[in-house]
């Protein structure tokens, strides 16, 4: 008989609902929901289309404690319309980020799982995304770190992919996916020759957690365990809060939000295109990065993966 006891200690982040992710991440019983289900803040757009609405409109927001520190937190429910952002959903997220500017929590945690804009709500959803981005940047400008966590079944795509990359720092598991156009969208618009979205291995080699980590788009790669996400989030906030650092220096963990940093980012992106623009697959990029046996990376567990790439990142 095979021994399965050592396989998983904690609770899978990938499989958890938005609500159980919050309770697993925060200190126990510390979560206070804002605009909870009983407030019935539901979408006005779905009913006329014959679509059932949700009392939370697919996102749970509130405050709580992480390792004793006050944080604000939002968690998208991938099960409801793929976590897609509608008018109310987006307004809840925007409101939470604006609240952060006033309340000055130790951090804002965004548990992102979304296919992007809710197409049923069209322009209202698109505007919601831009309002979220504006509020997120205001929060960062106020010196409050925004930490994004990605690792649900629906990945983080479309407008929420942009929102994710506006965060100070991101935590992802191997199962997590991050991108702008999702695999299905690429296949639909460009053809299956360009991208076969049914090729699951290819999908993870191009938008999966390990690849995003190697490209430097995501700063932290963790096991699929809520406890691992929690420990990493605590480390990030501890480092940011460290009293021995001057306020301006303490952002070693965080991307600086300055004109210079944005110009540098653009420079890095154009270099990346120069270096890897010809590649057809994640494995080709890893090969260009001089990683040994790149085709073996997808099969490695997280500790072995770190060992294999430690000299390349």
């Amino acid at each position: 008989m095979s021994d399965l006891s050592g396989l998983r200690r904690g609770q899978s982040y990938y499989e958890a609902t938005a609500r159980s992710r919050i309770s697993g991440l925060l200190d126990s019983n510390s979560f206070q929901e804002l605009l909870g289900p009983a407030d019935r803040l539901t979408s006005p757009h779905l009913e006329p289309l014959g679509q059932p609405c949700s009392f939370n409109d697919g996102i749970i927001i509130g405050s709580g404690k992480l390792h004793g520190l006050s944080v604000l937190i939002a968690s998208q429910e991938g099960g409801f319309m793929g976590g897609a952002v509608g008018e109310v959903h987006g307004a809840k997220l925007t409101g939470l980020l604006e609240r952060a500017v006033n309340e000055k929590p130790a951090a804002v945690l965004l548990l992102l799982e979304s296919g992007g804009v809710r197409l049923h709500e069209a322009n209202a959803g698109l505007i919601a995304i831009s309002e979220v981005i504006r509020a997120l940047l205001s929060t960062r400008a106020a010196g409050i770190p925004v930490v994004g966590l990605i690792g649900g079944a629906n990945g983080c795509f479309g407008g929420m992919g942009i929102v994710a990359r506006c965060c100070d720092t991101l935590i992802i598991n191997e199962e997590g996916r991050l991108g702008l156009s999702g695999p299905d969208v690429i296949e639909t618009t460009m053809g299956v020759e360009e991208f076969d979205s049914n090729d699951r291995a290819l999908v993870w080699r191009t938008v999966g957690g390990k690849h995003r980590y190697l490209l430097g788009e995501v700063q932290h790669l963790v096991e699929d365990d809520i406890e691992a996400f929690r420990a990493t989030a605590i480390n990030i906030i501890d480092e940011v809060q460290s009293p021995c650092l001057e306020p301006l220096e303490r952002s070693s963990e965080l991307q600086k939000l300055t004109l210079e940093s944005l110009q540098q980012e653009h420079l890095d992106l154009s270099r990346r295109l120069e270096n890897y623009g010809h590649c057809q697959d994640g494995t080709e990029i890893w090969s260009e990065m001089c990683i040994d046996d790149p085709e073996k990376l997808p099969l490695m567990d997280i500790p072995r993966f770190f060992k294999a790439v430690e000299n390349n990142i």
């Binding site: 609500r19 009983a38 009392f55």
Partner: peptide, 19 residues
């Protein structure tokens, strides 16, 4: 007491709130 909510609205699924 606060409302109790279980389940997620998705295809073939439902959410139930008790107040």
């Amino acid at each position: 007491r606060q409302a109790t909510l279980v389940g997620v609205v998705s295809s073939g699924n439902l959410e139930v709130m008790l107040e």
